[in-house]
Design a protein around this nucleic acid. Structure first.
Lengths: 223, 223
DNA sequence: GATGGCATCAACCGATCGGTTGACCACGTC
DNA sequence: GACGTGGTCAACCGATCGGTTGATGCCATC
């Protein structure tokens, strides 16, 4: 793969504008050849299986199947190498994607040379980083302060983000209110925040929580 | 402008990928001619003054000067027509941009035909919508439920988003705690939410508050 | 000049929240 | 078996919050 000829690339992004952007950008260098486009993770896996590109340029936030999951499938099956191309540096899914075997990640506002470099590196590199090493590498980049929250703590905070009271959360999760408060206090300590509002903000900034997955009462959900 | 020849277009976006995307997309139709690119609002105004494009394709969230402000300058000076090209439908700045005289707006995940149509419409249209009419039109599209908050109410909620207590907010704004609570209750009513946490989430979803402008204690600010 | 929105403040109430201590069980590691 | 972590729960406390009523003044609109 990608020995002498051009590097065969699959573009995965749910925005046509961005797909065209990458395509146009890559057209500047004849050593790149775009061999396909996909608008979601599921289509990406399907196409990667079919056409076996050298490198997949993968967006993270997509409908149907997110980029991190798709990365796991593609790299896991040894189909292609994956370079994550994302908008936000503060996206917790970056860690997931790299742990799933992504060869690297580039921000969308990076200069095009950087994108080129990442693609060439991914195509040329012999061995992909082992997940444990990748994890350690990423640890420096992301999560500057912040221990990971437990599953249950996240459950509680997801409901907090929807404006649910402790009593409501207890009912929803079928535990006592004491348990909810216990989870909250632990989460506050881990996040280094004083209250629930700050906790939600902190999670949003870390990328552990997405605005899309919370619904507040006064919410007409346009679109 | 744009009578017989091709439509001259200025692309404004802080992401090189997106700029290239639009450029590549527009290349498909010979009736479009990209005459310039800018990475922020200030550069956009400067370039629009210089090269007088028929249509400016304008992103909203940008450094130095945001797209809505730049739109106001460009349209106000009668330089060009502006089509807003944004990622989020739920961006409060869309209203600002349209009130500032933008001829229309398209989402980045819209099919390219729709982008083409918006550009042609902007180039062809004789008279730009009056701000008042635009406001009424936008009212249907956006702000499904939600009266605008007063300046003071926003001041309070910005501090709430940083995890400040009512007492802390009172000290910061140099008013009594009673005043803070008064603002909060009014804001809750307008936002149709029961508590401060939901209020912050609601504002974030409306785009009236940006995650970038809030800082929580446990925040290492990566990048 | 009446009306309404906005900002300001006081006093009060019950509900909720943040925090502590202490406890139990399950699970995995060492 | 000891240990640590995570999940569960109880009882308790003070602090904070949500909400109400009522009041004053300012400013713009009608």
């Amino acid at each position: 793969m990608a020995t002498s000829g051009s590097i065969r690339i699959l573009i995965v992004d749910d925005h046509p504008v961005v797909r065209d952007g990458i395509r146009g950008m890559l057209a500047a260098d004849p050593s790149f050849a775009v061999v396909g486009e996909a608008a979601d993770g599921e289509a990406a896996v399907r196409l990667a299986t079919e056409i076996r590109p050298d490198v997949v340029l993968m967006d993270l936030r997509m409908p149907v199947m997110d980029g991190a999951t798709a990365t796991g499938r593609i790299v896991g099956d040894g189909l292609s190498r994956v370079v994550v191309l994302t908008t936000y540096d503060t996206d917790a899914d970056i860690v997931r994607a790299v742990e799933a075997g992504a060869s690297g990640y580039v921000l969308k506002d990076a200069p095009r040379e950087e994108v080129f470099r990442a693609i060439r590196a991914a195509a040329a590199v012999k061995a992909v980083l082992a997940p444990e090493i990748a994890h350690r590498l990423m640890a420096r980049v992301r999560t500057p302060t912040g221990q990971p929250l437990s599953e249950r703590e996240m459950d509680v905070l997801r409901l907090v983000a929807r404006g649910t009271t402790n009593a409501g959360i207890a009912a929803e999760l079928r535990v006592s209110e004491a348990t909810v408060k216990s989870h909250l206090v632990h989460a506050f300590r881990k996040l280094n925040v004083p209250d629930r509002t700050s906790a939600v903000i902190a999670l949003l900034k870390r990328g552990d929580l997405s605005l899309d997955e919370v619904t507040v009462p006064g919410d007409g959900q346009p679109g």
